[in-house]
Design a protein around this nucleic acid. Structure first.
Length: 603
RNA sequence: GCCAGCGUAGCUCAGUCGGUAGAGCAGGCGUUUCGUAAACGUCAGGUCACGGGUUCGAGUCCCGUCGCUGGCUCCA
């Protein structure tokens, strides 16, 4: 019964999703018509699919679009919608299609692809040779597989909005023409559109770059360089608390801690294969007395050297080497983004070395450990991806990939996490599991990665002496659970909107004396709380209490402790929370208990 | 890297037609001593991203460089 209900709900979702897809796809066509009219004879249309939350269409135009253009296009779209023109589908031959789109080179290319049955509109191979269909509404005809709504009037003119423009390569290929993409969104109702726009605004309010500045967490300096993060005391504290917590968990989980340098000789990176497979992400070598050294893009080769520093017995395994290792990777300037995409970052990295028979257990353990850690930071929803071999970018023989890939899949099954297969998305050295978390706005962020590696133990000749007295090759697993501290902090900031749970808050409480005569008592209270381990300040600025509360609110400090004559008289504090809640007077003792409880509970 | 847009005080932003740079907040100093989201006054703060050009004169127009934003591509 319950199953049935669930399935019914799912079908309803699918149907709604399909209907929204039709609406968005149709809105894209209507937008294309408006653009064609704006640039008669000059606009070249490429593709315009529906996407999550909206649609886009790519154009080649004689000039750049302005925000005013978007307004005009939007206005024209509403007219077309109100015209209530039917969408008419027609199947045509390839030659007929070519004639229809003779002045549209991108469409001609698509038709060629369709005719060969080789590729679809994204350039992806298709299984069967598709029929060529066109859709017409009003004066506009597009090469299109559909589906569409029946009439333009099906679209709610109050629920459509053009958002912004961006450059996009034809078929995503940077060697090809750069087109102008217009992004838009479309919904069933104006309320849904409002809701979506509100979500965009909320995302902007939570933007970690904005909060990073407002809460004085970190900065990026032009003089240091792009993609290189400077952690300020408060951001540094949040990071340190996070790292300390993770270190303690790692220690309890049987990890050993190692440290390695930031550079290593070119020979090392040749042996590891990074110079073959990862060079485009590595910086130019540093010359030291005629030897080339590279800034490390990964920590693994160093950890392998530690493994190799002595003969290992099967009794020593598994070995788990953990390091908060700072790595440097070249990223093209256009992709850098706050803390989420940087050029220098610190991974919570570890390498597991184990016997083949231990491997399933190790993978189970690390997966469980990963989920446990992420839950401790307030994440509840996860999506797993199993990335398989990429034939163009893979070390070793295809057969070598089979067993590890299956081992990871089995681990996912055992952990009972829903997962998807990412065909061909593996690293060059082996298959992997990537884990994404969903944040408070249900946006997905990739944090964790668990990567099997059968190449490095071989390349570096790792061995252990087995029970049989012979040498064997250990299995190796790379894993980063929070991923990079930079990205993780960025995601945390956005997840909590800057209102960190108490245990992570850089300042947990601020004591607010109402007038100067209360400052001394405020200091005594703060001292007591600080002695108890709370991170607490006294706001003794020459300001009114209201201003001090406002300061604390904007800094998103969990506890505000107002003290005045009444509190001094009975040795209490008046508690206010950043939610605006006002629990009022409590004894210092009671407050300490409350705080301790919320800190321990990661509230 | 590519396309488009942007870059004025620590932050948010004005600055008209090319005519010698302005506000609020933040900061310093003073007054005020206040009960749950901004007291009042005063002072200071600028190589208008950087470099070049046009001009009698450039924050403003042109070129280049750097950086940022939205995307494309790629990833922790």
């Amino acid at each position: 019964m319950r199953r049935e209900v669930a399935m019914h709900a799912e079908m309803k979702d699918d149907h709604e999703e399909a209907e929204l897809h039709r609406i968005r796809h149709s809105a894209a066509h209507i937008m294309a018509q408006a653009v064609m009219e704006m640039f008669p004879g000059e606009a070249k249309i490429a593709i315009g699919p529906p996407i999550e939350d909206g649609f886009y269409y790519d154009f080649e135009l004689p000039r750049g679009l302005t925000p005013e253009d978007l307004e005009a296009l939007e206005k024209r779209m509403r007219q077309i919608i109100q015209g209530d023109f039917p969408f008419e589908r027609k199947v045509v031959s390839a030659s007929e299609a070519r004639r229809l789109f003779s002045d549209q080179p991108y469409k001609i290319e698509l038709i060629d692809g369709l005719e060969q049955g080789g590729v679809d509109e994204y350039g992806e191979p298709t299984a069967v040779k598709p029929e060529i269909s066109i859709y017409t509404h009003d004066s506009f005809t597009d090469l299109c597989r559909g589906p569409h709504v029946e009439r333009t009037g099906r679209i709610n003119p109050a629920a459509v909005k053009l958002l912004h423009t961006a450059g996009a390569y034809w078929r995503g290929d940077e060697h090809r023409q750069m087109l102008q993409r217009i992004y838009g969104t479309a919904w069933e109702t104006g309320e849904q559109l409002e809701e979506y726009l509100w979500k965009l605004e909320e995302a902007a309010r939570r933007d970690h770059r904005r909060l990073g500045r407002e809460l004085d967490l970190y900065s990026v300096s032009d003089e240091v360089g792009p993609g290189l993060i400077l952690w300020h005391p408060k951001g540094g504290l949040v990071r340190k608390i996070s790292e300390d917590y993770c270190r303690a968990e790692h220690a309890a989980g049987g990890y050993d801690f190692v440290y390695s340098p930031h550079i290593g000789k070119s020979q090392l990176w040749e042996t590891s294969g990074h110079l073959d497979w990862f060079r485009e992400n590595m910086y130019s070598p540093i010359d030291i007395e005629g030897q080339h050294y590279y800034l490390k893009p990964m920590n693994c080769p160093f950890h392998l050297q530690i493994y190799k520093s002595q003969t290992r017995s099967y009794r020593d395994l598994p070995l788990r080497y953990a390091e908060w290792g700072t790595v440097y990777r070249y990223e093209r300037s256009g992709v850098l983004h706050g803390l989420l995409r940087v050029r220098g970052f610190t991974q919570d990295d570890a390498h597991l070395f184990c016997r083949p028979d231990q491997m399933p257990v190790e993978i189970d353990r690390v997966l469980q450990f990963c989920l446990q850690l992420l839950r401790a930071f307030g994440f509840r929803e996860f999506q797993a991806y199993l990335a398989t071999r990429n034939p163009d970018k893979a070390a070793g023989e295809p057969e070598q990939w089979v067993a590890p890939t299956e081992a990871l899949r089995a681990a996912l099954e055992r952990a009972q996490i829903s997962y998807r297969i990412d065909e061909g998305e593996a690293t060059f050295y082996g298959p992997k599991i990537d884990l994404k978390v969903k944040d408070a706005l249900s946006r997905a962020w990739q944090l964790s990665t668990i990567q099997f590696d059968f190449t490095l133990p071989e390349r570096f000749g790792l061995t252990y002496v087995g029970e049989d007295g012979k040498e064997h090759q250990p299995y190796m697993i790379h894993r980063a659970l929070l991923g990079s501290m930079e990205r993780f902090m960025g995601v945390l900031i956005e997840h909590f909107g800057g209102s960190f749970p108490v245990w992570l808050s850089p300042v947990q409480a601020v004591v607010i004396p109402i007038a100067d005569r209360h400052v001394e008592y405020a200091r005594r209270v703060a001292e007591t709380l600080a002695t108890g381990g709370l991170r607490v300040n006294v706001n003794d600025r020459n300001e009114r209490m209201n201003a001090k509360i406002r300061d604390a609110q904007t800094q998103k400090i969990p506890y505000m402790l107002v003290v005045g004559d009444k509190e001094i008289a009975n040795g209490s504090v008046a508690l206010r929370l950043r939610s605006g809640e006002n629990p009022g007077p409590v004894s210092i003792d009671a407050f300490q208990k409350r705080a301790a409880q919320e800190i321990a509970g990661h509230v």
